[in-house]
Nucleic acid binder design. Structure first.
Length: 103
DNA sequence: ATAGTGACAAATG
DNA sequence: TCATTTGCCACTA
C-alpha cells in the first residue's frame, strides 16, 4: 500500500495538470513553474497520480527521454500524445516550436 | 549518515 | 557531433 510516496509534489503535479490538451512542456519548464529542479520533476512523474497528464511532459529538446527503463511507457506516451493531436516527428520527438505550452 | 541512482538540463572538451 | 561532467533534488539500500 505504500506504493505512493508521502511526499506530494503538489506544485509539480499542479504545473503538469495546467498543461492544456494538445500542448507539451519540458521537465525544466515544469520545474521552473513548480519551483523545483528538472530532476525532481522527473522523479515526481514516476509517481504521477491520476489526473496528471505526465505524457505531456517531454525533454527540453522535445524528445521522449522516457523509455530507458520502460519501453512500454514510451509507446504509451506516444499513443497518448497522438490521441491529443500531437504527432511525433520522424525523429521521435515533439515539435516544441508548435506544441510547447507557454506556461 | 554515506553512496548510488534517476522519465533532466546546460556547459565543456 | 558526441561523450563527459557538473548541478540539482528526492528516494533506496
Amino acid at each position: 500500500m505504500n506504493d505512493k510516496p508521502p511526499r506530494p509534489f503538489d506544485a509539480i503535479y499542479e504545473a503538469v495538470r495546467a498543461i492544456p490538451a494538445g500542448r507539451v512542456m519540458s521537465y525544466g519548464q515544469v520545474g521552473v513553474l513548480a519551483g523545483e529542479t528538472p530532476r525532481t520533476v522527473g522523479w515526481a512523474m514516476t509517481s504521477a497520480p491520476d489526473g496528471v497528464p505526465w505524457h505531456r511532459v517531454v525533454g527540453a529538446d522535445g524528445y521522449l527521454r522516457i523509455g530507458r527503463r520502460s519501453p512500454d511507457l514510451q509507446r504509451l506516451q506516444r499513443d497518448l500524445l497522438a490521441a491529443e493531436g500531437i504527432p511525433l516527428l520522424e525523429n521521435g520527438c515533439v515539435d516544441m516550436e508548435l506544441y510547447q505550452a507557454e506556461g
